[in-house]
Nucleic acid binder design. Structure first.
Length: 207
DNA sequence: AGCCAGGGTCTAA
DNA sequence: TTAGACCATGGC
């Protein structure tokens, strides 16, 4: 009987305790928008280019055109610039009062921001605000599918993933990052990954 | 050269 | 409520 807790332990043993997305909450928020349907390498390069300007106040006062140019390599730059502006304003507003709000309340607030859907909202909750809200992204769905976990929808996936794990942001954040680590370790066109059941790349390789 | 990348919105049926 | 079009760039 495979449980989420069992999978989590196995990932921990394989890869060790993963690093946190970023210790800086605003960096998490900014990058969470940038990474939408975009390769992580593009996000890294963009963050590097932004450098010390990665601060809510700086980004909020920046010309939209300048922000668009900075994030251009991540694609969808007009939409993402608008979203970043919105979520930045929201973050500055709630940063001092979030302690009074429930995780669900915060989640609903974030989801009200145009350009932020469930995945991005959960990333912000877990890695920036340190609230427990399991992140269901493309990697995680693929991972579960290849593991043979049957789930008809995200609700069932979420139930499976959370019922045997402590409902803590730290656990959710580590789990999510471990799944990404696993993907990177096994699925970058490595011959030894032939037959690896976890990603699209490997599935093609073993077909 | 085409497909994919850690999505989200909008519209039509 | 769901499928499909669309947004855009970079890497392979």
């Amino acid at each position: 009987m495979m449980t989420a807790a069992g999978i989590y332990d196995q990932l921990l043993r394989s890869y060790g305790t993963p690093r946190w997305w970023s210790d800086d909450p605003y960096t998490v928020i900014f990058e969470a928008v940038l990474v939408q349907n975009t390769a992580w390498s593009n996000v890294e390069a963009t963050s590097k280019a932004i450098g010390s300007r990665m601060k809510a106040e700086v980004i909020l006062s920046m010309e939209t055109g300048e922000l668009e140019n900075l994030i251009r390599p991540c694609g969808f730059f007009k939409a993402k610039a608008r979203t970043i502006k919105s979520v930045t304003a929201w973050y500055l507003k709630i940063i001092n009062e979030s302690g009074n709000l429930s995780t669900e309340d915060i989640r609903n607030e974030i989801l009200g921001i145009k350009g932020i859907g469930e995945e991005t909202a959960d990333v912000i909750l877990v890695y920036a605000l340190r609230r427990p809200s399991f992140i269901l992204d493309a990697y995680t769905r693929r991972f579960l599918e290849r593991m043979g976990i049957e789930a008809g929808n995200d609700g069932e996936r979420r139930a499976f993933l959370t019922e045997t794990l402590p409902h803590e942001a730290e656990t959710y954040g580590h789990f999510h990052w471990l799944i990404l680590e696993h993907g990177k370790a096994h699925c970058r066109k490595r011959p030894e990954c032939k037959g690896c059941p976890f990603t699209t790349v490997c599935k093609k390789a073993s077909a």
